[in-house]
Design a protein around this nucleic acid. Structure first.
Length: 595
RNA sequence: CGGGCUAUGGCGCAGCUUGGUAGCGCGCCUGACUGGGGGUCAGGAGGCCGUGGGUUCAAAUCCCGCUAGCCCGACCA
């Protein structure tokens, strides 16, 4: 196909759109690929649609290759299925809701688990029908509190979502592996570097979950990786637990007056004055900080919990949120926030700045079995035999040399500490580094949550009804277009990898002779006959400079210039990405570029 | 939801402090020149200055309310 710029629906902009912050957004708008229709909602123009179609084609091919079958659901859905799984309310403000003329509730689908589950339930009823892998490429709607960065986080976006249905866990594992393989191939073919990271499946119940993150400075997710290849979402990092220390000849603890030391900083200073030690100054890492948090269960009840962590560390509420539900034996999603004044007022035994587990096992304050009855969880680094400076539960007093398991106990450990650059990877593969990334895909084993709540059961070998187990797998297709634009551009514009470019060849004709136009037009037709997509800049009365700039902005991988060289029988071939240019005989150029 | 900023032709902006009937660049139209890096000249079209109210002889400009958008943060299967 030949797209003539004289008639193509396109207007390139010389200036960056004022609302755009990130390069991909600026360039996609400037080069005429997309237009903003509303916050986080974009119109696709002809060039943008070409790229989108090519990305989708790659996704389809790889999904079909693992035996997945494409279907297409409506984006406009009735309330009932989402009511059954509880998501009509759980989704909260993020859901676009609307009513029909009769006043019945509808929604614009934020994701389609319910509909896929019901579709399989509708048509299948035997284990012999399984496994089934179904997918669609479709619009999703989420009323994001703050859409940003153009296509990277929109309110309407295109997602490839697929779901696997199996009778047993082994089948689910196979489905997961198959999808994982397809994802690796999809991103490789797109030319998008991705790092599969372990993700926290959370209270959703799914056992296995990985996110495919594309490392980039404009990414919204933070993840960590090690030189040895470990990669994980910060929520999912596990701490390397030190060995227990023998405390048989450790000195007894002592309670000291430490007036006006409500912070770790002031405490460390006081410690170095009161009890200077030979092996170097006390540091924050020698103190045990006890942070009071409130855990809010799905019913909205607040549970006060104290978390003990090394004083040089900070609590990461999101990390705590991921697992604290298990520790408290609460089912469902919980929220964790810093305790407020009201929470503290209910527990007068908690003296701000001087909270500690208690002075001795027989005088333990924190813990379900102790005097306060408050659940006490600690960081996994607080192992048996470690010795701490910590609060003595009395204003102006701290206890020194309090030894874990000898002088205090706790109800359990929790991963709640902010992961730091340089922390060791859990698999021993070296120090962790934090990086930013964009989530390009997410695969996870859903298990039986949706199948159970929507009653998707099939007869098994023994003729008994059995709940189907599911996997859910998503790729952000429009986000992939943005990520590609972000990864492949320079100061002059976009520079697409050839498999996703809106065209294969961009022909520019410069000069005003009729013979130039004829020659260029013939070349365009020859390329087209070879099955190539061609953009042909045939605009009359447009200066060469404008045409070159537009070609670079649009970013087709190969630019062919038909101009002054034609008299000598040559055209210029430019590589958009490298900037390399060379003359090629007109008679050879089609052959050479289609080889 | 908290904080900051903005709203003036299609786009990017100035004008507002000190009220007097709207201007610049890009883009668009016509013509001439130019013709390998966003070229030059001449002529043109296009604006209830976000919205509602107030002050005033007079409001883009001053005052009050509202709305929308952008950025940072919170949030984001």
């Amino acid at each position: 196909m030949v797209l003539k710029l004289s008639t193509l629906f396109l207007r390139t902009l010389r200036e960056d759109p004022v609302e755009a912050e990130v390069d991909s957004h600026k360039l996609l708008v400037r080069a005429g690929y997309i237009r903003r229709a509303a916050p986080g909602i974009y119109t696709w123009l002809p060039l943008g649609l070409k790229v989108l179609a090519r990305v989708e084609a790659i996704v389809r091919e790889e999904m079909n290759a693992i035996g997945a079958q494409e279907v297409h659901f409506p984006a406009l859905l009735p309330r009932e299925p989402y009511e059954q799984t509880g998501r009509w309310t759980e989704y909260g403000e993020g859901l676009f809701r609307l009513k029909d003329r009769k006043g019945a509730d509808y929604l614009l689908a934020p994701t389609h688990e319910e509909m896929f589950t019901l579709l399989v339930k509708d048509l299948y009823s035997s284990y012999k029908d399984l496994p089934a892998y179904l997918y669609q490429i479709q619009n999703k709607y989420r009323d994001e509190a703050r859409p940003r960065a153009g296509l990277l986080r929109g309110r309407e976006f295109i997602m490839k979502d697929s779901y696997s249905f199996n009778i047993d866990d082994e089948g689910l594992d196979e489905a997961y592996v198959a999808h994982r393989g397809a994802y690796v191939r999809i991103f490789e073919r797109l030319g998008l570097e991705v790092v599969p990271v372990f993700a926290q499946a959370g209270a959703m119940g799914g056992s296995k979950s990985e996110e495919f993150l594309h490392p980039t400075a404009v990414g919204e997710d933070t993840f960590v990786r090690s030189p040895g290849g470990y990669a994980a979402n910060v929520e999912a990092v596990t701490t390397v637990v030190p060995d227990a220390i023998d405390f048989s000849d450790a000195a007894a603890f002592e309670v000291l007056d430490t007036p006006d030391t409500p912070t770790i900083e002031t405490l460390v200073e006081a410690a170095n004055q009161l009890r200077p030690r030979a092996e170097g100054q006390w540091t924050a890492a020698d103190t045990l900080k006890n942070v009071v948090v409130a855990v809010i269960d799905p019913e909205g009840n607040r549970h006060v919990v104290v978390i003990g962590i090394p004083g040089d560390r900070q609590v990461d509420l999101k990390r705590a949120e991921a697992t604290i539900g298990l520790a408290l034996e609460i089912n469902g999603e919980v929220a964790v926030e810093a305790a407020n004044a009201e929470d503290l007022a209910k527990h007068p035994e908690l003296i701000a700045g001087y909270i500690g587990p208690g002075n001795g096992l027989d005088q333990q304050v924190l813990g379900t079995e102790a005097s306060s009855g408050i659940i006490y969880l600690v960081d996994p680094r607080i192992v048996s035999g470690t010795s701490w400076i910590t609060g003595a539960n009395e204003k102006g007093k701290h206890v020194f040399g309090l030894v874990a398991e000898r002088d205090f106990s706790f109800d359990g450990t929790i991963e709640s500490v902010k992961v730091r650059e340089g922390d060791p990877a859990p698999d021993g593969s070296g120090p962790l580094r934090t990086e930013r990334g964009i989530e390009m895909g997410h695969i996870f084993q859903l298990g039986r949550k949706y199948a159970a709540s929507l009653d998707l059961k099939v007869l098994d070998k023994n003729g008994k009804l059995s709940v189907v187990t599911m996997g859910s797998y998503g790729i952000g297709v429009t986000r992939a277009v943005a990520a590609l634009a972000e990864a492949y551009h320079d100061d002059n514009g976009l520079a697409w990898p050839k498999q996703v470019a809106p065209a294969d060849i961009h022909i520019v004709v410069t000069g005003k002779g009729e013979e130039l136009l004829v020659a260029a037009d013939n070349l365009a037709k020859e390329f087209e006959a070879k099955g190539m997509e061609v953009i042909f800049d045939d605009r009359p009365k447009v200066s060469a400079g404008v045409k070159f700039s537009d070609a670079e902005l649009i970013g087709v991988p190969t630019i062919v210039v038909v101009g002054r060289g034609l008299a000598d029988g040559v055209v210029e071939v430019k590589d958009r990405a490298t900037g390399e240019r060379r003359d090629v005989a007109v008679t050879d150029v089609v052959e050479e570029l289609t080889a």
